[in-house]
Nucleic acid binder design. Sequence first.
DNA 1: TCTGGGGTCCTAGGACCC
DNA 2: TCTGGGGTCCTAGGACCC
Length: 401
Amino acid sequence: MERIIFHIDVNNAFVSWTAVDLLKQGSKIDIRNTYAVVGGDEKTRNGIVLAKSPLAKKVDIVTGETIYNAKRKYKNLTVYPPNFRLYQEMSYSLFNLLAKYTPDIEVASIDECYLDYGKVKKLYGNELEFAYKIKDEIQNTLGFTVNIGIANNKLCAKMASDFTKPNRVHTLYDNEVKEKMWPLKVGDLFGVGRSTLPKLEAIGIHTIEDLANYDLTKLTRYFKNQAKHLIDIANGIDNSEVKSIPDEVKGIGHEFTLEEDTTDINVLFKELFLLSEMVGKRLRKENKYAQVICVSLKDNFFRRYSHQRKLVNATNITSEIYEHSKSILKEFYNGESIRLIGLRLDDLHEENIYQTSLFEDLTKKDKESSIDKVIDEINQKMGRNTVTKASLANKKINRKE
DNA sequence: TCTGGGGTCCTAGGACCC
DNA sequence: TCTGGGGTCCTAGGACCC
């Protein structure tokens, strides 16, 4: 069977979705046609650009830069706060629409997916016609536009959807790679990031074509095992499958930037407690137990450090997660000024195979577990964060998720 | 009031065992 | 006894993505 893959990508997703929502609420202006970005709050030090309108892009505003910097590029820029709940709903509505046509859809992120068209071509016919049809259907029923890339593998479909925007359909079949992809800058290649790019340029590789034709033995000297993969992707080679059934979640983490830097370990402990509740709650919701706990810090020079610990017994109990994370932090925190703290759970298991120790108080464990259950249930019924442990009662909780 | 948060995958080195 | 090497587990950190 012929391999035909679609990559469907929402144009300026967060800006578009915010625009659709504002219009629904009666707004007279469509922010997609203004100098607008969606970005975090500068006051809580979350002030970066998450998405930009085409006009904002025109004045060289880029995703990831500070709001402060973006405003220097365009003085009257409007900044909209992100609304992740809305984005999640918009995302579902898109994937539900596509699922009417085929179950072979891989959700790649909140605003993009792959669709295995080869498997349903007999049903729907020519892929270009079908792509235009669903592109228009999305626009007419959901109110936002997408780009669709069509190719013989996922990588090329992804590259194709990134050609000219918005509201376009592009193809990048195997026999079009040389003509359509090779002239692009090597940094535009999916999989070449900000660390690999300068290394490639240093050895004279500037376009995707340069990389595609580079000698493998020579490239291996610089990139070891990564070299073959780099040359493959530059040639548009990718054999990965469209995975319609998502992998089991492999880890759960949360982190936050503090409102101000701190050297006070007790402040860090408090944050760890809040993080423990958040990751614990999610873990229990997934019915999983974690065996690895990882605490990470970012200092005021933006350097990241982390330490992890593998537990003898996996856990999903908030107080246990907290006690371990606290002791991990104590182990490696050296008093420097901290900007961000994060907590991650890895090595997740379905069941808790518990190795009992002779001296362990299992009654206490049961009690902790039922306390968590009660807190989860109340929060479920009454809304988030109605109840937390007493030590947090005086802490303002207004974190965004 | 310059620089978020949530993931996955990979690599390298050390410990340990045979 | 003069220095191997395969395999696995564990940890720390890097790279990439949206």
